[in-house]
């Protein structure tokens, strides 16, 4: 078991899948010669050559659409978006074409494409580069969305996504790229739609995804050390498909739920999770469900304020104590 970074885990996933299947192609802005805007694809051009690792012009609607078309004929493109924020100029391709082609063709055509890249705030780059579109995209049947929080999950989910026969959108986080963790040396995947209990507890369930998992784990530690509270942290890992049973099992055990995400609150992923809990475990609840999301405004540029706009450890602890009161 090697200890590698989240970035290296993503790269390892792509390298292994490039070796396993010659239909896998890596494509995106600056992924080849430049070695990746965030160095995720570093070294892949040297190892696999320009047929497999392809630099694109700044033309998201064009090259994402091209990848979707190629996937219909059996190529398995892994497209990098420098930021998921840039997906908005390719929305027709990402939603209308990738998401609907199987349905509208009555199952005749598949779209085995992966689109990956960072989707996060907290990097002091302002509103246009800080979008977290997992809830927007997951609201479209036909699309799958995953948000890994650890190197192990990043590698396993990306490998599963590349092997999946449907469009899978992998939302990473630049702040996590240097985080390190244990990753097995042997081949493995993390199936889509399987949540992971990252910390076992008995008094409160925190449901989170992406970097909010890391924030929640830190908060859980403080809650235990300073308040004597045992917190269970459920990492969704996958937004659609969603592992409803793991969420419900945890809530049935702790009887209290706090939902944490870096999205803005309106129609966030946790709105769906809250609905799930109240509809299927209402009688199990000893307190109302609470949420911690980003403060509801376009992402602020000022670094000091942005850190407060995002869910931070203090806010999660404060809100957890309210649920426990």
């Amino acid at each position: 078991m090697a200890v590698i970074s989240y970035r290296e885990a993503l790269r390892a996933a792509m390298r292994e899948e490039l070796k396993r299947d010659d239909k896998v192609v890596i494509m995106g802005e600056e992924v080849a010669q430049f070695n990746g805007a965030y160095k995720v694809t570093e070294g892949l051009l040297k190892e696999f050559g320009p047929k497999r690792i392809v630099d694109t012009p700044i033309s998201e609607a064009g090259f994402i659409g091209l990848g979707i078309g190629a996937s219909m004929l059996g190529i398995r493109p892994v497209m990098e978006l420098m930021f998921w924020s840039f997906s908005y100029v390719a929305f027709d391709q990402i939603v209308n074409n990738a998401g609907n082609i199987r349905y509208m063709s009555g199952g005749l055509i598949n779209c085995p494409i992966v689109i990956r890249g960072p989707a996060n705030g907290g990097t002091n780059v302002g509103a246009t580069h800080s979008h977290t579109p997992e809830a927007i995209l997951a609201s479209h049947p036909g699309i799958k969305v995953v948000c890994p929080a650890t190197p192990y999950d990043a590698k396993g989910l990306l490998k599963a996504a590349i092997r999946d026969n449907d469009p899978v959108y992998v939302m990473e986080n630049t702040i996590l790229y240097n985080d390190k963790g244990e990753v097995p040396d042997e081949d493995y995947i993390v199936p889509l739609g399987v949540a992971d209990v990252k910390r076992v507890g008995t008094d409160l369930t925190i449901v989170a995804h992406g970097r909010a998992v890391i924030t929640s784990l830190k908060a859980a530690e403080i809650l235990e050390q300073e308040h004597g509270v045992s917190v269970e942290v459920v990492d969704l890992r996958s937004i659609r498909p969603l592992d409803e049973e793991t969420i419900l099992a945890s809530v049935r055990k702790t009887h209290r739920a706090l939902l944490v995400e870096e999205n803005k609150p309106f129609c966030g992923v946790d709105a769906q999770v809250a609905y799930l809990i109240q509809s299927r475990a209402f009688d199990e609840l000893d307190a109302p469900i609470h949420r911690v999301s980003s403060i509801d405004a376009p992402q602020i540029y000022c670094k000091r304020m942005e850190d407060q706009q995002l869910p931070d450890v203090n806010r999660v602890v404060r809100e957890a104590l309210k649920v426990l009161a």
């Binding site: 004929l73 059996g74 391709q93």
Partner: peptide, 11 residues
């Protein structure tokens, strides 16, 4: 148009 370009790319 981009989809078609992708089909040509795959070919």
């Amino acid at each position: 148009a981009p989809l078609g370009t992708g089909l040509a790319y795959a070919v």
